[in-house]
Amino acid sequence: MTEQSARKNENSDLIQVKNLVKYYPVRGGVLRRVIAWVKAVDNITFNIKEGETLSLVGESGCGKTTAGHTMLQLIPPTGGSVIFDDIDVFQLERKELKDMRRRMQIVFQDPYASLDPRLPIGESVAEGLKIHGVGNGSERVDKVMAMLKRVGLEDYHANRYPHEFSGGQRQRIGIARALTMEPKFIVLDEPVSALDVSIQAQVLNLLKDLQAEFGLTYLFVAHNLAVVEHISDRVAVMYLGKIAEMAPRDDLFAKPIHPYTQALMSAIPIPDPTIKRERIILKGDVPSPLNPPSGCRFHPRCPFAQEDCAVDEPVLRELSPEHTVACHYAEDFLD
């Protein structure tokens, strides 16, 4: 990232997510009453500064994608608030929300499912412009063509259908579709996890270039730590619907504190067979968010768990500037 230009507003938060909650009801019985709740996202709070990339990482099912989708109200939130540019997005009327959507966009994980198979991709990219009545027909065509070229496609691609493109190309189309709205903020929902490694780098670099060019702010949802290290300014680690640790990228990768983060970091392969490293292998599977463990949600799998971890739920505490950890014994790992 071009650090000087994009960070001039370093201290102004573009987005503040406060106590975001998303529970899914589990219905059962003849009357289909709610018998339980899946706590996909359970009270998470973070902020994203203008022009920065915050990564949300964690294993499958930890709620990172749900968090991204809920922020954009693609799924209705259960609670909390999202403040975008001093506006509480969850309190907007339908019309205001429609306008707000121009400023907050999303790029999806699955490049095969994120484009309507019946539409030539030019139409898909133009959809947002049509919905918001931007320009007339030919102006929209010009805009779509320019955007396709910007993301590395050719204008003659506009008449083609999604099935005629490779995964990487489709992801570029998805990016173009989001960018035509001229958003300030984009949720990147595992945008490269479905792509070949060689293509991943191209798309990541494209995303970085676009961020610098248009002054974009990213929420980057991912499970691949190598990718996260490449693109992030700050990283938030999620475990079972909660944030376990949040820190600037270099801090987090150099000095992971939370035992879960340590375990994640130890799983990154190092391309050097001579380096020996202690892997932290976690016991068991991720517990179900239907019935999360008491106290610290990580305690059943934590190699350092103490008795009180099963009782008291740790809150996020700031250990060093910008480095927050949700662990009772965080200081013990500082050494």
Binding site: H69, L72, L74, L97, K98, D99, R101, R102, M104, Q105, I106, F108, Q109, D110, A113, S114, L115, D116, S124, E127, G128, I131, H132, G174, R177, A178, M181
Partner: peptide, 17 residues
């Protein structure tokens, strides 16, 4: 449940649309 439907919602499409 397809993502292109979510995409349309994210772009501001109405339920009718």
């Amino acid at each position: 449940e397809q993502e292109y439907v979510s995409a349309s919602l994210a772009l501001g499409g109405s339920h009718f649309h």
